[in-house]
């Protein structure tokens, strides 16, 4: 198993009531699978036109790369809500 920290900021922090949680995941899990898991857990639509986004180790990845991106032990995934305006 690998341990991945999932952090929340913006609306996701409000909706989960969490600043962060650490998940134990299968060693071959991809970012795509983790996002699916998060979408199921919190009724989100990340990657399907919803207003929340994920960053892996502080970087955004194109949607098409999620399925080929295997998570590593110690990775950090940040879930944030859409940012617009300013």
């Amino acid at each position: 198993m690998i341990r991945v920290e999932v952090r929340f900021a913006g609306l996701p922090r409000t909706e989960t009531g969490l600043k962060a949680e650490t998940l134990e995941l299968a060693p071959d899990i991809t970012l795509e699978r983790l996002v699916e898991q998060l979408n199921r857990s919190y009724s989100w639509e990340i990657g399907r036109g919803g207003s929340h986004f994920v960053l892996l180790n502080q970087q955004s990845l194109r949607r098409e790369r999620w399925s080929e991106t295997r998570l590593q032990d110690g990775d950090s995934v940040l879930v944030i809500s859409a940012i617009a305006g300013g």
């Binding site: 900021a9 913006g10 609306l11 922090r13 207003s51 940040l78 944030i80 809500s81 859409a82 300013g86």
Partner: peptide, 22 residues
């Protein structure tokens, strides 16, 4: 619909995001 977070929190919603990103 698309600016629901703006209604709930205004632009101050960015504070924790910017801090989280360092």
């Amino acid at each position: 619909e698309t600016k629901r977070a703006h209604n709930l929190f205004g632009t101050n919603q960015y504070t924790e995001v910017m801090n989280e990103l360092g």
